[in-house]
Design a binder for these strands. Structure first.
Lengths: 137, 137
DNA sequence: TGTTAATTCTACCTTTAAGTAGTAATTAAA
DNA sequence: TTTAATTACTACTTAAAGGTAGAATTAACA
């Protein structure tokens, strides 16, 4: 019951980039070393983030990455979507999709409240909200 | 962000066994067919549940399974523990263990409330509470 | 006492997530 | 124009989850 490594890494990467948004560009080596993420895995994740336009990349010498939007406009949920890690409305705690509130499975009622809280947290927390804590890992 | 298949199956299996607790024994074939769980995978799960004393097995012809405790004494959390799927106190939403409330990582504050709700739901929901809904899958 | 219906054990196979390696493409600086 | 620093691409390897196969074990029943 937790987020995938890719999602966890991506949140930490983007939160760090938010902290350093005054720097014009941040490169993969700095991200990997500061955040203790395997370099090659990190570059793969960055490519994904570039593809969905959360991050802009500048290739070549002196290149690097920067946020493509204001940090207050990037929500945690947007990041989770990239790695198929968000909680869908129809997702039942027992993994049966598409119950749409009609499902009467065990735990259905108990699941509603934490599920809504998690969805709200993912939907309403922006990078701006969660950054600036000085905690790198 | 969801429970493992093994945990999901195990909850459904035990909830079904609770529904049928008047039957002296329930065998693997019935469970697999009723709950649409692959037979061989189900028997592996049952073996795990037997080893931790949630279920009792009677081998041989006319054998089968039955709950080893009162259904009001088996909590959902006990089941998740078997498959290492419960939420530990020190578990951070970003997957970093052992932050023990000292962690200041992104999302730390936002994670507390849903985390406590989920832990409470797992700790306080017994099979008795969640069974009897007539929903098999 | 042999047959049969059941669980259990050991080992394997498949799929997906996680991580690695090598090289190509790009670009600024020397 | 060469070189070094950088991201992007393709393919591979490893680890874990999910699932399968078949034989061994057990015990009721005929």
């Amino acid at each position: 019951m937790q987020l995938s490594n890719s999602s966890q890494y991506a949140i930490r990467i983007l939160a760090y980039m938010t902290d350093k948004k005054d720097s014009p560009l941040i490169n993969a080596t700095e991200l990997a070393e500061t955040l203790f993420i395997p370099y090659k895995f990190l570059t793969k994740i960055m490519t994904d983030l570039v593809k969905v336009d959360l991050v802009e990349s500048i290739r070549g010498r002196e290149g690097g990455f920067k946020l493509k939007k204001k940090s207050s406009d990037i929500m945690v949920g947007d990041i989770l979507d990239v790695f198929n890690d968000s909680i869908k409305d129809e997702q039942c705690v027992l993994g049966i999709g598409f119950c749409n509130g009609l499902c009467k499975c065990a735990l259905h009622d108990q699941w509603m409240e934490p599920k809504l809280l998690l969805q709200k947290m993912f939907r309403e927390s922006s990078l701006e909200d969660i950054a600036g804590r000085g905690c790198k890992i």
